[in-house]
Amino acid sequence: MPARRAVTGRSQEPRKRFAEELRLLRAERELPLRKLGEAVGWDWSLFSKMENGETLGGPEVVQALDQYYGTPGLLLTLWELALNDTNQFKERYRQYMVLEAEAISLWHYAPSVLPGLFQTRAYAHTLMGWGIFKGEELTRQVEARLGRYALLEGEDAPSFRAILSETVLRTPLPVRAQWQEQLEHLLTVGERRNVTIQVVLNSAGLYPLGGTAVMFLKPTDGRTVAWVETSHSGQVVEETAAVDRLQLRYDFVRDLALSPADSMEFIMRTLEEASCEPST
């Protein structure tokens, strides 16, 4: 599989960057538009419009291109940034999305909600529908988030360790069947060779990072960058000493968490409890 593509030195304007990457990927293979259309299964004229910046296309066609070019998640990430190039995503979050697409390993701590890469359609729709997005825009946002799951697939997918607070697993969706589906999906994701899930119980008491979601990303250049997020803001942390301090706190939380095997058993018990609850 091809190495993850560096994104520096290219356009920083999301829509132009997306079109630029599409043109470059096709040019590298000296592939005519018509042959690309035949290989991927869409009319070649659509790809022409996407490369010229006339349209962004939909998540399905972008996912198909990611698969064809061997760039799992990269094009979909750039598409999402381009789609939201109306200041709905702040520049710091755009920077994070690019880092996520390029990372060779990821470590996450979730204090209250599941990581986006783990969310089902119902979970994402409920979370993002709380007055943030509506109608067709909500549908596009949910599709974009679901498409990011491709980042975890493929032979060169990054390793992903997620530590979930017990609170995450004790906060169900309003519809019980949808919550059961989410827990089942979490168990399925946890079976992937590149994914490790741990649960830190409420009985562990107070611990560092308590209410702050943190993602550590290691790009191809070997450094580690952190994304720190609260319920209303987020920021990329690149300064080495600050990242190291966050890493020490993360390591402390990991030591308090259940082992991966015990964590999967805990999630299974949570699913069984949800299945046994009386209908309301």
Rank of each mutant, 00 (worst) to 15 (best):
T171I: 03
G222T: 03
L33V: 02
E143R: 14
Y93N: 00
T212P: 13
Q95H: 14
M1H: 11
R140E: 12
S279T: 08
L106M: 15
L152I: 10
N84P: 01
E181C: 08
T139N: 14
P115Q: 04
E100W: 06
L24T: 13
L217Q: 02
R140N: 14
G210K: 06
P174S: 14
N84E: 12
W107N: 04
R5P: 01
D66Y: 01
H232E: 07
P111Y: 00
E30V: 02
L183H: 10
F266T: 01
I163Y: 05
L127W: 09
P208Q: 07
Q88G: 00
K35A: 12
L76T: 09
P219H: 08
A82S: 06
T240E: 07
I104G: 10
E143M: 09
S263C: 12
L99V: 01
G37H: 07
V195K: 07
T240M: 00
E100Q: 13
E166C: 12
D66T: 04
P14C: 07
A6H: 14
R34G: 07
G70H: 06
L256S: 07
A19G: 08
P2Q: 14
S279K: 11
A204I: 10
R249L: 10
L248G: 04
G116V: 08
T224Q: 09
P208I: 05
T220F: 01
V253L: 03
R193I: 13
D85G: 05
F89E: 09
A110T: 06
V168T: 08
F216S: 01
I104C: 08
P59W: 05
M128N: 09
E166D: 13
L83P: 00
T220N: 06
G131C: 01
S233G: 09
D43Y: 03
I132Y: 14
A27C: 01
G190K: 13
S165P: 01
D255N: 11
L164H: 10
R94G: 13
F160N: 02
Q235M: 07
N52I: 00
Y207N: 02
W130N: 11
A177T: 14
W130Q: 13
L209A: 05
V225Q: 02
M215Y: 00
E38Q: 11
P219A: 05
A3T: 15
R223W: 04
R223V: 11
R254G: 06
K218H: 02
I163V: 15
D251Q: 14
P72N: 06
F266E: 03
T171R: 15
E273L: 15
K49F: 09
V189R: 09
G135H: 12
R29H: 08
G154E: 10
H108Q: 15
V195Q: 08
Q235G: 02
S263F: 03
F160E: 01
M97Y: 04
W130F: 04
A157Y: 11
P278S: 11
E137F: 10
P2W: 07
E191K: 15
V113E: 05
R170Q: 15
G116R: 05
Q235C: 01
Q67K: 13
Q178K: 15
D66P: 04
R254Y: 02
S275N: 13
R145K: 14
V142P: 02
D66L: 09
